[in-house]
Amino acid sequence: MISIDEPLTKYSRSNLIDIQEKLIDFLLHSQLVNKEGEILSWLNHNKPGYIYPEIMGYYISLFSWLKENNNQQVSLTVDRLQEHIHLSGGIGRGDILYVFDTCIAISGLLAYESYSNTYINPNILARMTNFIYENLSNELIAFSYKNSKIIPSKWSTKFGASTLKTCISLIKIAEKYHDYKLHNLALELADKIVNRFFFEGAFFINEEENITYTHAHCYALEGLLFLTSKGYSQYLDILRAGADKLKEWQQKDGSIFNWYFPKNHPQKIYYKPIKVSDANAQSIRIWLAVDKQKYAPQIHQSFNYLLKLISPESGVFYTIEGHDINSWSTIFLVQAIQWYLFGLKSVDII
């Protein structure tokens, strides 16, 4: 078995440190961040990305955790994110508000507040908390605030696998306000999602379709990582089985596809599997946290694959064939490298 302390196949420790520094510089100083402090979904001059408040939350969490919270760019993003919050307390894109996105945003704001000793507007945090609690209590994930139009059923708009990651924000808010109803809701949601959507090592996207979106599967495991770090050991077996499934899905070149289907399940044409960077970077973090020795070969393979996807600008392409330099893939890879090089605490999962 490969030892985690041995160098990567192609990249030394010093190489990885240099790569991480360039990724961080890209996140702070490239056109991925506009003058107002907003983060784009991706950088592609031929197909510009959109302003993505959820990723602003990830961005703030990352740089707070890296203790870059005094950086002027990060402070600007913190201020701008608060301006994106709807009167209801939710955030989203267009006229759609997403509970998941709101959870990622509040986690970022709480991280910034914690690391910088700078108070976030308590009225904003209260609105966000109420929005999150009321909607998750009713298993509502996404809706239009302008009219009653039906939101298309997707992995990101229905209660399912990805919702498990919202437990992280619920616990963090509960700890801030000493509010046990939020804490209890997190555990209720985790149990519901495991019981309803977990099958043979994989999390299905929702009740309407028993297929797996790897990005959402990883979100579910990240939620369980956080809960187990808080002492809820009842989820350990599920977490290990989910990590094993990622190992099973990894290709010989170190890549991971975005869609997986149960045996004998008809593959729908609009779910075309492609090799993606976000779920791959997420997988590295999960393997490192669950059992870094057991998954050392997979960790090395994924690193070697992902580092091929680093653009000349030092961001991470979403796919090896594409031209979108993806913001969240870059953020996840920065944390994966940090965990690999310097150790980890699962409670710090971004």
Rank of each mutant, 00 (worst) to 15 (best):
H183Q: 03
L189K: 10
C167T: 12
P152T: 05
W155I: 10
A186P: 07
K165H: 14
L170I: 02
I173D: 07
E139C: 14
R196Q: 15
A220N: 09
K230W: 03
K165M: 13
G231R: 04
L185N: 07
Q234T: 12
N184H: 04
L170C: 04
Y177T: 09
N210W: 11
S137V: 08
E222W: 11
K176I: 01
K172D: 00
S229H: 08
T214I: 14
S169M: 00
E208H: 10
I173G: 00
L164Q: 03
L239M: 05
K149A: 11
K154Y: 15
T212Y: 14
S162D: 15
I193H: 05
N184Q: 11
L136N: 01
E208T: 08
A241R: 15
L225P: 06
S156Y: 14
L221Y: 09
F198N: 12
H215F: 05
S137K: 04
F203S: 10
V194E: 11
I171K: 06
H215C: 02
L182M: 06
I151N: 06
S229M: 13
A142T: 03
I173P: 10
Q234G: 04
Y145P: 06
I151F: 07
E188S: 13
K154T: 15
Y177E: 10
Y213M: 11
E209T: 02
N206L: 01
T163E: 09
I141E: 13
V194H: 09
G223F: 08
N210H: 15
F226V: 01
A161D: 11
Y232T: 03
A216W: 05
Q234I: 06
K230C: 13
D191R: 12
L236G: 11
S233H: 15
Q234P: 12
E175F: 02
H183W: 07
R240P: 04
L136M: 00
T212C: 04
C218V: 07
L185T: 10
N195S: 15
L225W: 08
I151S: 01
K165I: 10
S169I: 06
T166I: 07
L187G: 02
N195P: 00
I168T: 01
V194M: 07
L187T: 12
T166W: 13
N184C: 12
A186T: 05
S169K: 08
Y213P: 10
A142M: 10
I238C: 13
F159T: 04
C218L: 01
Y180A: 03
I211Q: 11
A216S: 12
R240T: 09
Y180W: 02
E139S: 15
G201I: 00
K154M: 11
S148W: 11
L239G: 03
W155T: 04
K154A: 13
L227N: 02
S144K: 03
H178T: 00
L239A: 01
Q234K: 14
F203P: 09
D179G: 02
K181S: 09
L140G: 14
